[in-house]
Design a binder for these strands. Structure first.
Lengths: 345, 345
DNA sequence: TGTTAGCACTCGTTTTGTTCGAGTGCTAAT
DNA sequence: ATTAGCACTCGAACAAAACGAGTGCTAACA
């Protein structure tokens, strides 16, 4: 079913209004809209049609109408106009990137803060994914008689570590030798390749410390998989400012949904494949998020997408503005990280 | 002003009741209390006195009374009885500590979870503080032409890292030499001493790489100070189950108070000096926390207090139970960490 | 034929009024 | 000193009424 031009304009006006006010939109309001020169009665007829087509819903008979998920989908895909960010806003973001930040984690954390602050929604961002990143150095450090710490440094300056058991009596020299060996074999290899293909090869090759080495590498792999902690979020309480969460039950529901970060992390990593994604309301797989929308964007080092960031807000979020902000921040962050580490690739 | 025996008993009964029900306590309720054999009228007189003395408050004329912060203070200091934890509860905690967990961070995280789960309040715990911990290994890893990563491993298996600028053209060998030198000089030194006294000494001694070394050590110091990220909390949404936060405004207030972790972290580190602390309502420095109470306990490696954990709940929290749980968990965690790392000290 | 003014109707929200009862303070009796 | 009795207070819970934003429908109009 196609909508004619007029219906589209009306629908766009309704969505725009609802995004701002969160109040059911009446025919009268739309008839006063500058773009639309029709009486409220005509609008009523059109609205009635739009409702039948599934784009609008009526909370109850004598209220205005609110857009359905389907309406937001259409809005995002073809109705909304690109918004221009204000000078103030872009400056705010530029300032963020011009700061001297040494640690990747700090950059990520601050990006999350800027995002939530600017959008007034909740933001979430993954730390750079290691899979596409190259190993730089492996070091085994003795911690006790039976344990050592295995530290892996990547070329983006990210450190991962895992405790490994070592045979009693292993001396420092031996650990040092092993560190050198591992570094030599793994340096400049991609993380994911190292784990899947290289590690078995190395294990086969070296008879000497076979059991120990395998355990070490296994620990490492586990450490890598535990990446789901590597996600930062900010501005969760922003959500409580929106009337859709003024009901305690919903608020609690939402907050407990995000307290275990796993699902969010899943969404973000899945989204790393796409430049942008917009997931509206019931399109979310997680039942508890079905009255939120999630907008994500990726960031890159060089040309490799290496992480993604997202904004979570009510379904009536300001998609246009959010996308503009994510685009800007995504580019800025990509540039910053690329400068930080790409130099010598 | 001293309270006589009877007033104390009455006050204790009121507090006990209010902790359970969160409803203003009336004279009738207390007169039916098994420990107390007085008519409601007598209780009313006593309550009137207690109110005058500042131990009770009346929300409005025809409601019962609720304990003031002052009452809770007295309650905690001398009124409450030690509670015995149930078999189920202690088993729950023991199970937690019998798990095989390699990483310190995992242990901490899980402890936080157990605490919030068991108390149904919010829990918060610092990762082991580095100050009293000994350095094991220092390693500089080149990351780009101009940057290297300085990784410090401590004997409790905790890793800290910082990016440092290096003179262009520094080769791997040189970094390796420096790593060895730093490791040799700093190994087995306490973190805090290393930073305050040793580092200047080393700087003086070595002319060669003076500027560079100093920058490195300065980065390290900053990295250590940024410890405030090293805090885990769990069960924030538990708080929303209590009627004192059923009002949206208060809930928002509370949640935003804990979103920036700095203040909490401050409280916890300050509390590391004391075996237990109980901070009630307005005793909190942070205005936004003035209708919460915070109970903390330390945990140790060997005999050194090395971190602390806390429970945050409404002022009418079950202090006795919370203290019992914290005591148990504190001992358990201390034991576990001590076993993990003390062996070879 | 599409648009619009007019009007009766719907239904959630707000306001106002009423009742109910838990709990108090005071007084007088024990 | 304690307690029974009683009038009084005041919020909570409920009900009824007034309100008004918004609708759908009809009939008139361009």
């Amino acid at each position: 079913m196609e909508l004619d031009m007029r219906k589209m304009r009306i629908l766009a006006a309704i969505v725009d209004d609802y995004i701002m006010t969160a109040m059911p939109v009446g025919s009268r309001t739309i008839s006063k809209h500058p773009d639309i020169n029709l009486s409220s009665a005509t609008i009523r007829n059109e609205m009635s049609d739009l409702e039948e087509l599934g784009y609008l819903e009526q909370p109850h008979t004598s209220a205005g109408r609110i857009p359905s998920d389907k309406a937001y989908r259409l809005y995002v895909d073809s109705l909304m106009r690109n918004v221009r960010l204000s000078e103030r806003e872009t400056r705010f973001m530029r300032d963020h990137f011009s700061q001297e930040l040494d640690q990747v984690e700090d950059v990520v954390k601050q990006t999350a803060w800027v995002l939530s602050n600017l959008t007034q929604y909740m933001s979430v961002i993954t730390s750079p994914q290691l899979h596409a990143v190259k190993i730089k150095h492996v070091q085994l450090v003795p911690v006790s008689e039976e344990k050592a710490l295995c530290v892996v440094v990547t070329d983006s300056g990210i450190v991962r570590d895992a405790i490994v058991r070592i045979p009693r009596g292993t001396d420092v020299e031996k650990l040092e030798r092993l560190s050198r060996l591992l570094t030599a074999r793994l340096a400049n290899q991609r993380m994911d390749e190292a784990i899947t293909t290289l590690i078995p090869a190395i294990c086969d090759e070296i008879a000497e410390n076979r059991a120990f080495l395998m355990a070490t590498l296994e620990s490492l792999r586990r450490g890598m998989d535990a990446d789901s902690a590597r996600m930062t979020m900010a501005g969760a309480t922003n959500m409580l400012n929106y009337p859709e969460y003024s009901d305690m039950g919903k608020a609690k529901n939402f907050l407990s949904a995000i307290e275990t970060k796993d699902k969010l992390y899943g969404m973000l990593t899945k989204a790393t494949k796409m430049e942008f994604t917009v997931t509206i309301g019931a399109e979310n797989e997680d039942a508890q998020m079905q009255d939120c929308s999630v907008v994500t964007a990726t960031y890159r080092i060089g040309n490799d997408p290496i992480g993604s960031m997202g904004i979570i807000g009510p379904t009536r979020m300001n998609y246009s503005r959010v996308l503009a902000i994510l685009r800007y921040m995504g580019n800025g962050l990509s540039e910053m990280l690329t400068n930080m580490f790409e130099e010598e690739r």
